[in-house]
Design a binder for these strands. Structure first.
Lengths: 132, 132
DNA sequence: TTATAAATGTTATATTATTACATACTGTTA
DNA sequence: TAACAGTATGTAATAATATAACATTTATAA
């Protein structure tokens, strides 16, 4: 199970904002949105984001420099993430597919490298955009 | 087969530099290295990088904002990329594993999304760093 | 309670990437 | 070859993303 983390004040403000958002949020858009709550500087945002990523409450979409709340109540998600990204509407969702995650978590090759984490991003067109 | 592209002057300068590098290169490090060749501005670098990525001669390592030359002579690689990244020495290499690429290229789920591209980044410790 | 780790606040700055606009080159085809 | 379209280049300015450095405060636990 995921360890229960007591979020600090800033962490909670920022997590709640991201969690409510239907789309990935960028750091400076987060900053803009929390300024009325007293969070004034980029570093305050980035520190909270770093922590939230570390404990798996949010994920960074690397190709977009944006953050979404974890959709997955199960454990280990911060070490094994997969997303689908629509290149037209930019909708992003977390893929929760146990076969996929099992396959990738168990992946090993001849390089002698020990993999402890992965991030996978699929790109394409979502149902809506496909039919346009 | 991969279409043969005649690289332009800037594209060639920048590709050659990246191709010779044993590690992923960042845009501004590339800029610094090609200034003696007359490429003076970030935009000149980014334009060449964009094109080189588009035609699959290089790949962007999203989690590192860095670029490496494609190690794969086969086609389609720019649409189906996988890398292993050592979190200690930051060594990055392209994974060429046909089972993995087949599995991911054929991946589909119930979302109704049509996937046309993916990027996968594995993290861990390489052989050398593991034994330290 | 005292020490330690974690979080916060603040200023400044570094790094990564794009906009906007003008010009030049390359290849095609009329 | 002239005209065109598409691609590439040059340049300046600026936007967007992220971190360094330092001082202080709060939470946790020994």
């Amino acid at each position: 199970m995921q360890k229960e983390h007591n979020l600090s004040k800033n962490q909670k403000i920022i997590f709640d904002l991201i969690d409510k958002s239907r789309e990935p949020m960028k750091a400076y858009s987060i900053l803009f949105n929390v300024q009325k709550k007293g969070i004034k500087a980029p570093l305050q945002v980035y520190r909270a984001l770093d922590k939230l990523v570390e404990i798996g409450k949010i994920h960074k979409i690397e190709s977009r420099n944006a953050f979404i709340a974890c959709q997955n109540s199960s454990c280990q998600v911060s070490k094994a993430t997969a997303f689908s990204i629509c290149e037209s509407c930019e909708n992003v969702s977390e893929i929760s597919n146990s076969k996929l995650s099992k396959y990738l978590s168990n992946f090993s090759d001849s390089s002698g490298m020990k993999y402890s984490k992965y991030n996978l991003e699929f790109f394409g067109l979502c149902k809506k955009c496909k039919s346009k």
